[in-house]
C-alpha cells in the first residue's frame, strides 16, 4: 500500500493540530507541518507531497502567494492544494481557486470536512 505525504501550512497551532488530528485518520499518511508559507515552500522544495493544505491568512507569506508559487514551480506544480478560508471571504476563496487551488474548506472547521476533502484529493 502506497504512502501519502501531506503538507499542512497553518500559522495557528490550534488549527494545525485540528487539521493534523483529522488527517491522521487516513491510513498510510505522513504529515509534515509548516507555520507559514515560507516554511511550507522550503518543505515543498525538499520533498515530494501528494497534497498541500494551507490557510490563506498567514502573516509570513499568505496562502494565496503560496498557491501561486506552487503552481509556477515545475517541481511541484501538479500537487493538489486545498485552501482554508473564512466563511464569507468569497474573494479570497475565488482568488485561491483562480490561482490554481483545487478545493477549499471554510471556517469554522469540521474534521469530517477536512477528511472528506483530503480523501477526495488523494483518491482514497
Amino acid at each position: 500500500m502506497s504512502e501519502y505525504r501531506v503538507l499542512v501550512v497553518e500559522d495557528s497551532p490550534t488549527m494545525r493540530q485540528l487539521i493534523v488530528f483529522a488527517l491522521k485518520r487516513i491510513r498510510n499518511l505522513k504529515i509534515e507541518e509548516a507555520g507559514d508559507g515560507v516554511g511550507g515552500l522550503k518543505k515543498l522544495s525538499a520533498q515530494k507531497f501528494d497534497l498541500v493544505v494551507t490557510d490563506i491568512n498567514m502573516l509570513i507569506m499568505d496562502g494565496l502567494k503560496l498557491v501561486s508559487l506552487i503552481r509556477n514551480d515545475p517541481q511541484c506544480k501538479d500537487v493538489p492544494v486545498v485552501v482554508i478560508t473564512t466563511e464569507g471571504a468569497t474573494e479570497d476563496r475565488d482568488r485561491a481557486l483562480a490561482l490554481g487551488a483545487n478545493e477549499y474548506i471554510t471556517k469554522p472547521i469540521q474534521t469530517a470536512r477536512i477528511l472528506e476533502v483530503a480523501k477526495k484529493m488523494l483518491g482514497v
Partner: peptide
C-alpha cells in the same frame, strides 16, 4: 469524533 477532536484540541491548547 468531531466534538472530541475539538474538545481535545481546545483543552490541549
Amino acid at each position: 469524533n468531531n466534538l472530541l477532536a475539538n474538545l481535545y484540541i481546545t483543552t490541549y491548547q
